[in-house]
Design a protein around this nucleic acid. Structure first.
Length: 484
RNA sequence: GGCCCGUUGGUCAAGAGGUUAAGACACCGCCCUUUCACGGCAGUAACGGGAGUUCGAUUCUCCCACGGGUCACCA
């Protein structure tokens, strides 16, 4: 076997959003190519004219850009085998389809949609096409063509025998030809179907490894037959295990919109970072060898990736683990990086205090969208029920205890000249000691009064330092009033 | 329903005939602690079932069950 340069492609149809399963396919495709220093191609499969979505190609290109999956050939980049948008290659396909007809591996079909529909009704599930036009006399075909009767071109599947191919992940896949349909290659509107044009393009573009989801496992024999009919070398087929989602009823199925945020854009908008997403999905269906490390940059993935680490069984997309990964990535950010990422997620950023607030939340969140809710109290004291807030079993705090404590806290604070965390902490613990109260209780009351919350990012004195003396005192005053 | 594929803890997964069956997330507990997190330590929890092959099967074979995928002028 000659060591060919590895060429892979990512060939999505422009649907308007980048499904996370598609992104993983793109990632694996990229990794397979780049691990061998090969070529990664982006090709847009837009032959379904009825489902065209405006701007959808940009979504794909943007996603590849922010995830770092740089392609060597494709829209906007060019390459020797372009164009890379199938609608711009339309005339190529008819030419090849006709060649297939001449080779006896395809045929014209003039059946109306109505006839096909009635076929479906008769046979129920799996009935399929009855091959009515498969052996039409040449003269009739010519006549129909001349008469302008709409036609499609179908693949002429052998009636007997089996078709076998080797999949790099699943091994030998064998299918009896009688299970295969005479699928449509060219549609009546002159556009090819996926089933046809992807084979032509993959060959023309020199793709050596066809990487795609395992939903194509059962239709690949038909594609293999196409390669054979043309006399082309079959590529290495790499089918990836499916990404699954768990529905509300507990069942798992192919990850889709009903499972929640499944597009890359959705996840980003929800505060997940691209690096974390890429890292996480790389590990869904693939496992690195000889390491227990789970953290990988794209470059590290490229080095570590290997075909034999790919799993066969489908994996359930786990938002909990993604959240953990994302939190880890957030914690690794420098304060500057974190600020930059966080800003878009803060609705009314208190710019003057932000540099002191952000370090408090950075270790405490799993995704960036959690920030807003955690820091809102710095800008505005939330409304609270004092009877409820000033209850803490562990520190034996009740509203009555809190009321007695507040004046002590205020006077302790009045002696603080350097308004910083250390001085505040010293003052409050000194007060606790003097009055024989557990410092935890004092700090709890102080923190609750100053934040209006029982759970906060940062401790009492950290919050006070950021709030400043005036605001702190004002909030303590409000607490005293609410406690009556 | 036919065909194809899969099946190790709740989830992601390692394992390649002999292992105390890794590790991670989640969960639980403890420690740290100025709440909550972070961090540290520990714990609960798995080879779908049945036949074979073998001295020995989670690992190989077959059957069954279950799960998934696929059967379009969608990709």
């Amino acid at each position: 076997m000659i060591n060919r340069n590895v060429v892979t492609r990512f060939a999505p149809s422009p649907t308007g959003y980048m499904h996370i399963g598609n992104l993983r396919t793109a990632l694996y495709s990229y990794l397979i190519a780049k691990h061998s220093d090969g070529t990664f191609i982006l090709r847009i499969e837009d032959t379904d004219r009825e489902r065209l979505v405006e701007g959808a190609t940009d979504v794909i290109i943007d996603t590849l850009k922010v995830t770092g999956l740089r392609y060597d050939e494709g829209p906007g980049v060019g390459g020797a085998n372009g164009p890379y948008i199938q609608s711009e290659r339309k005339e190529i396909y008819l030419r090849y389809a006709k060649e297939l007809v001449e080779r006896g591996a395809a045929y014209y079909c003039f059946c109306s949609k109505e006839r096909l529909e009635s076929l479906h009704e008769e046979d129920g599930v799996g009935g399929g096409y009855d091959r009515h036009c498969r052996d039409l006399p040449k003269e009739e075909v010519e006549a129909n063509l001349k008469a302008g009767i709409p036609y499609v071109i179908r693949q002429k599947i052998p009636l007997e025998g089996t078709t076998t191919y080797e999949d790099a992940v699943f091994g030998t896949i064998s299918t009896e030809n009688k299970e295969l349909q005479d699928q449509i290659l060219m549609k009546a509107d002159g556009y090819p179907t996926y089933n046809f044009c992807h084979v032509v393009d993959d060959h023309l573009m020199g793709v050596t490894h066809v990487v795609r989801g395992s939903e194509y496992l059962t239709s690949t024999p038909k594609y293999a037959l196409l390669y054979d009919a043309f006399g082309w070398q079959r590529p290495v087929f790499v089918h990836l295990p499916l990404l699954m989602g768990r529905g509300e009823d507990g069942t798992v199925s192919k990850l889709s919109k009903r499972h929640g945020a499944v597009s890359f854009a959705d996840l980003c908008a929800d505060g997940y970072m691209p690096e974390a997403i890429v890292n996480y999905i790389a590990l869904l269906g693939w496992c690195p060898k000889n390491t227990e490390n789970e953290f990988f940059t794209l470059d590290e993935l490229t080095k570590a990736f290997s075909l034999d680490g790919i799993n066969k069984s489908p994996s359930v997309f786990d938002y909990e683990k993604l959240l953990w990964f994302n939190g880890e990535y957030i914690r690794k950010l420098t304060p500057e990086e974190f600020k930059e990422r966080a800003l878009p997620f803060i609705s009314n950023p208190p710019m003057d205090k932000l540099d002191r607030i952000l370090p408090l939340v950075q270790p405490r969140i799993g995704k960036l969208s959690e920030i807003d809710g955690k820091i809102a109290f710095f800008s505005a004291l939330p409304d609270y029920d004092a009877a409820e807030l000033f209850q803490n079993k562990k520190n034996k705090v009740t509203p009555d205890v809190a009321r007695d404590m507040l004046s002590g806290i205020v006077s302790a604070l009045s002696g603080v000249f350097e308004w910083n965390n250390d001085a505040l902490y010293a003052a409050l613990t000194a007060y606790a000691e003097q009055s024989g109260i557990k410092s935890g209780a004092v700090l709890f009351v102080a923190r609750a009064a100053v934040s209006g919350l029982s759970v906060t990012p940062g401790g009492a004195t950290e919050i006070m330092e950021i709030l400043g003396k005036d605001e702190t005192l004002a909030r303590l005053q409000i607490a005293a009033e609410r406690l009556g």
